[in-house]
């Protein structure tokens, strides 16, 4: 075997690089043992690579040996090594994430609570406003009723019941006439709502001869709650009557639609 040619082939360089098949590896190994020139060549190739790569080393690594021995738990020091770096990493990472999660959940909960409270406050505001309106309405209502009561109790007041007439016998009304301030209060609770296109009209009458004077139409009759209407009356009325007239009212009463009539009793 031509040892020199074998060396010059470059196979030993690949052997050191670890690039040979296992069979080639074994051949080189065997030849190395038999031929010192081959062994010497391999040692020099290896040494060249070791020198070159050592020159690439970025710095001292003696301190790493102790770390490695600690991790392997060799070197006399029976230090129980709990992979410091990893533990640190895990502890920090996990507690960091845990803290983030807790804070995040807390934030969400707080925001949610805040929204709920805001909604409750908003509901309470609405309810408060509603109650205020009701109280105001009740106060107004009370004032109106007190006023009415005062009117009815006035000793100058003249009460005139108006009875149902003819086909409308089941209707009724009442007039409270205050001569001192020339106004009447008409309580028309006993009248039905005016049909579409019709309106109630109130008349003041003098009897001999029978002369009707319109006191006006009640065009808000259907919408009124207590059906009490304050109407000016400067006439020397002897009787009051209510007829159902076409919308807008009539010049003179339509007798067929005379619902209620009442005569003022002379004191």
């Amino acid at each position: 075997m031509d040892i020199k040619a074998y060396i010059e082939s470059g196979i030993l360089e690949l052997f050191v690089a670890g690039q040979l098949s296992s069979q080639d590896n074994k051949d080189v190994q065997d030849l190395m043992l038999k031929h010192p020139e081959i062994l010497q060549e391999v040692l020099e190739i290896e040494s060249a690579i070791i020198k070159l790569s050592s020159a690439m080393s970025p710095g001292d690594n003696k301190h790493l040996l102790q770390l490695i021995k600690d991790k392997l738990q060799i070197g006399g020091k029976e230090v129980k090594v709990i992979s410091i770096e990893k533990a640190k990493y895990n502890w920090l990472t996990y507690s960091g994430w845990a803290a983030a999660l807790i804070v995040g959940a807390g934030l969400l909960w707080t925001v949610n609570q805040n929204q709920q409270l805001e909604m409750q406050v908003s509901d309470a505001d609405i309810e408060k406003a509603y109650l205020e309106v009701q109280i105001e309405a009740a106060k107004t209502d009370l004032a109106v009723k007190e006023n009415l009561l005062n009117v009815l109790r006035d000793r100058d007041i003249i009460s005139v019941p108006l009875g149902g007439q003819g086909d409308f016998a089941n209707t009724y009304a009442k007039v409270y006439w205050n001569k001192s301030n020339n106004s009447i209060y008409l309580d028309a609770q006993g009248l039905p709502n005016a049909p579409e296109g019709k309106v109630w009209q109130v008349w003041s009458l003098t009897l001999n001869p029978l002369t009707p004077t319109s006191l006006g139409i009640i065009d808000n009759f259907n919408d009124d709650d207590n059906k009490i209407f304050n109407i000016a009356n400067t006439n020397e009325s002897q009787a009051f009557a209510i007829t159902l007239e076409p919308a807008g009212g009539s010049e003179s009463p339509t007798m067929e639609q005379l619902h209620t009539l009442g005569v003022v009793s002379q004191p």
Binding site: S53, S54, G59, N61, K71
Partner: peptide
Amino acid sequence: YSNSMHGVIYNIVRDHEIAEEVMQ
């Protein structure tokens, strides 16, 4: 072999700390 391996590793990872990790 540590210097040689340190050089080989550093040549691949190009980071001092990572090279020391890989060394271990």
